[in-house]
Design a protein around this nucleic acid. Structure first.
Length: 433
RNA sequence: GUGACCGUAGCUCAGGCGGUUAGAGCGCCAGGUUGUGGCCCUGGAGGUCGGGGGUUCAAGUCCCCUCGGUCACCCCA
């Protein structure tokens, strides 16, 4: 209770050296580095968009009927404008693509992102109000190889980081003509059993019946056994697209399961839909999801349709999966050098020496509280310093400072002006091994 | 938004049916003689017992409210 204020519900600080990886900066840095490395290798380029977007972009992009828009947005008015803290990144990326006419650049746009998103849900394991998404989008390509590539980068990231036990499920939702036909058929079927449906499903029946497909209620799942099947309604072209996608995935040796009940919570998906799940990370088992969204650009005002496909993944859930896989992530980073000084004259020299070390590229620490030698040595040890340079009255008068290699305890004297080059050579030597 | 469980030092936790100055381990700080870390020993700092109200002679311990955490529903990343 040192402070009156604390992080608000569903948010958390990320600190150096925290015990739990998801709360530790060094772990985040490592994971982010890994994600970006894979994205880079797949020739995606990073895009950064504002956290604040116009509410209408999200509402029209994701769909008014979705849970995200209808009840999970952090939005507020200011002047005559309504703003949202972005709940996801796909709509903003497409907005940027249209705004900056990225279609005019040569070839397809291959964009990736990583950053905070916000949803006003009740927090629980793997679910926060401020959370982080990373993902990739390919805009301007109709071919199913784009769908396949999106799935491939996604899988590569988890594989690279050492996540095991994932389960990829895929489906096709059909196009803008066949999907409504199926919707009607499903609606008509479920209407007969309306009384047996849960209140939520009853609500959905009228507005968004496809969402009922992924219900967890046992008797509803039973009812769905006799329901019209989505694959039977999918149009010829979507069917072919889907078959081709499976072919590419097979060629790439990606394992997947087909799930005709897989639908997604965002309205903009057409044809391909997929989800990456993990069985051992709790109720929030979806690591990532995505699909094709050829209608989104038009929905947010583009005069020309933009074929597009992408995935989005949760960083916090990735941490859960990493933990389940037993992957260890880095903690506090050691320093190369720690400079110890005793007495005002030595402290003055030491201050300059510290800066000289840093200019030479050495990670260098020191303590300016005027502690005892013993205490300063202790700090050097805690900082996991490779070397300690000791400066006191004796060193000042002799011109020779002490250099101690902490691991071995070996200590030698050397002229003050040779220290930096000596430490540099030591660092280079250890870098090679 | 609904439900269940939980909330004591920086961290992990003890604190039988309410009763003297609230404890431990780890961590932190400082000593263990003259200028040296990690091990060990000694000492010290640090808590309005999440916050507010109530019951009582007396509450960390009981009741209510509130805030937060956790897990599940829901939803999705």
């Amino acid at each position: 209770m040192a402070s009156t204020f604390k992080t608000i519900e569903g948010t958390f600080d990320v600190l150096p050296g925290a015990a739990v990886a998801v709360h530790r900066v060094e772990a985040w840095q490592e994971v982010e580095r890994g994600i970006r490395a894979v994205m880079h290798r797949f020739a995606f380029e990073e895009i950064r968009t504002p956290i604040l977007e116009p509410t209408a972009l999200i509402a029209r992009g994701i769909g008014q009927l979705t849970d995200i828009v209808s009840k999970e947005m952090f939005s507020f008015e200011r002047g005559r404008t309504s703003y949202v803290l972005r709940p996801e990144m796909t709509a903003p990326v497409v907005r940027a693509y249209l705004q900056h006419h990225l279609s005019q650049r040569p070839g397809a746009a291959r964009l990736c992102y990583l950053g905070p998103c916000f949803r006003a849900e009740r927090p629980q394991r793997g679910r926060y109000r401020q959370f982080h998404q990373f993902g990739a989008e390919i805009l301007g390509v109709t071919d199913s190889r784009a769908d396949a590539e999106i799935i491939l980068v996604m899988m590569a990231i988890y594989e690279e980081l050492g996540v095991t036990g994932t389960d990829l499920r895929i489906n096709t939702l059909g196009d803008e003509h066949s999907r409504p036909r199926y919707r009607q058929a499903l609606q008509a079927y479920l209407e007969q059993f309306k009384g047996d449906l849960s209140p939520i499903s009853q609500e959905r029946l009228a507005r968004n019946p496809l969402r009922i497909l992924d219900t967890k209620v046992a008797n509803e799942r039973e009812l769905l056994q006799g329901a019209p099947k989505l694959p039977d309604y999918v149009d010829k072209h979507s069917r072919a697209h889907y078959e081709a996608l499976k072919g590419w995935l097979d060629d790439a040796n990606v394992r997947y399961t087909e799930d005709p009940f897989l639908v997604r919570g965002l309205d903009y998906y057409t044809r391909t839909a997929f989800e990456l799940e993990h069985a051992k990370i709790g109720a929030q088992s979806a690591l990532a999801g995505g699909g094709r969204y050829d209608l989104l650009a038009s929905a947010i005002g583009s005069r020309h349709p933009v074929p597009a496909v992408g995935f989005a993944a949760g960083l916090e859930r990735l941490f859960l999966a990493l933990d389940a896989a037993g992957v260890t992530l880095p903690g506090r980073q050691p320093v190369d050098v720690w400079v110890v000084a005793m007495g005002p004259d030595a402290e003055r020299q030491a201050f300059s020496l510290v800066q000289a070390c840093r200019r030479a590229g050495l990670r260098t620490g020191s303590d300016w509280s005027g502690r005892s030698l013993k205490a300063q040595m202790r700090l050097a040890n805690r900082a996991a310093a490779s070397y300690v340079v000791i400066l006191g009255e004796r060193e000042l008068s002799s011109g020779q400072v002490q250099i101690r290699q902490m691991r071995t305890g070996m200590q030698t004297a050397a002229p003050m002006n040779t220290i930096v080059t000596y430490l540099q050579s030591q660092q280079n030597a250890s870098a090679i091994t």
